[in-house]
Design a protein around this nucleic acid. Sequence first.
DNA 1: ACTTGAGTTCCATTTAATGGAACGACTCGG
DNA 2: CCGAGTCGTTCCATTAAATGGAACTCAAGT
Lengths: 245, 245
Amino acid sequence: MSVLNNAADVLRCFGNDCPDLTVSDVVRLLGMPKANASRLLKAMREANMLETIGDSHRHRPGRLMLDLAAAYRRSSLLIGRASEVVAEASNTFGHTGYISVRDGKEVTAVADFQGTNALRVVSNIGRRLPAHLSATGRSLLARLGEEAVHALYAGHSALHDLSEQLSKVRHQGFAYSSQEATPGVDAIAISVADPRTDEAVSLCIVYPHALVDTKGRNEMIAALAKGAARIAEDLGDSAFIAPRI
Amino acid sequence: MSVLNNAADVLRCFGNDCPDLTVSDVVRLLGMPKANASRLLKAMREANMLETIGDSHRHRPGRLMLDLAAAYRRSSLLIGRASEVVAEASNTFGHTGYISVRDGKEVTAVADFQGTNALRVVSNIGRRLPAHLSATGRSLLARLGEEAVHALYAGHSALHDLSEQLSKVRHQGFAYSSQEATPGVDAIAISVADPRTDEAVSLCIVYPHALVDTKGRNEMIAALAKGAARIAEDLGDSAFIAPRI
DNA sequence: ACTTGAGTTCCATTTAATGGAACGACTCGG
DNA sequence: CCGAGTCGTTCCATTAAATGGAACTCAAGT
């Protein structure tokens, strides 16, 4: 209805696989009269929410947007603490690490730490993934109660499988995926929350399947678990489950 | 005037040192009637541009904003190419690296690569710095003509010094700062542009002053210069100046 | 119980958003 | 050189939303 919602809809278009937008893209994607789309993009441009690429008619997010993700990170003690842990683990083992948050049925990375190994998984920060299809997503879904997950995934065909996976995660204290989203890539994830702000984040390490055996995997789980446990204790996360390896 | 501009003003408040905002913060910072501020924050919340922290009245940027910086990076071939170069240099030397863009008289980092050395400079992505007070900023300002810089800094007391520094940067092909913004921290920066999109980025390495001698510094400049020269050639940046060491 | 500060809601007024249609700019193929 | 197609902008009357003063709620402090 209001411009603000339309502007938000435009920004949402950048979410997945869309590096830039034209007026007619917006008309197509949002089903809006093109007069509105034209004026909306112009207004967003003038507000620095968008900028044109060169002198073409293609738009990308504006400079105003560049610092907001960092402001989000700064607003959260939990993210800062989690980042320290994952940064250290990433450096120790040479693999890429993330901090992710859940937004409904999706997860998105808020911070990433590139691995240093020659063969490492490339960072995919800023891409939204279905929560039920990734270790980091399941580590966050596992924090919800059984009922909350049922409510969230009501009518979803994957619900039964997901429930089983989540009880495994709850029992183990960590989530694990092997070549699930990407062939050759494994991931481990542990979640921790700040009860004062109701935030939950996932600490995640992704690594090439071929490079890490069970022993190496367990060392990484132990490293993340140690850091996560300290955070859980400091912040009072009583729902934290110490991983059993 | 319109909500969009007010919303943009609210988002701008997160820029510097402000991790969260309340209704009265907005009233104070933007001089807006509190009825408006209250409704504006509510509307931004409902559009996912903001979210409340826990159940308090404090707001931070919303989930919608988290992926936009990544979309910006993805929209630019130049940023992608520059990131590869800086990521490699960061890994080789163990120091922290950035990619930055200029926005008027400010620079902001769009990508960062944490160093791996025990003593390394901590990433400050998402903070805007005055362009004339940092190596990365001066490497970008040097690309502007002498006149453009005079126009941009008209009436600014630092203009004279800046002009001198910039001609040095233009002659050398790189910018260097020693313990300028932060005691004990040095930085080197080289800029490269994409003439097709009118973008310019700075490739920057920051390192502890005590850890690097002139020889080490020159090795890093050479590494950045080599990568930047390849980008300049591939994209047709005729204004690129190969650093002289 | 009184004050102070923060946040929300109400309502008449003002201002901006809407969308159909006409217009201008560009590209492609003949 | 022309006409069809695509894309983006502008115009204008209509409709809908933003505005800001004031009244109201709620909580904390004294």
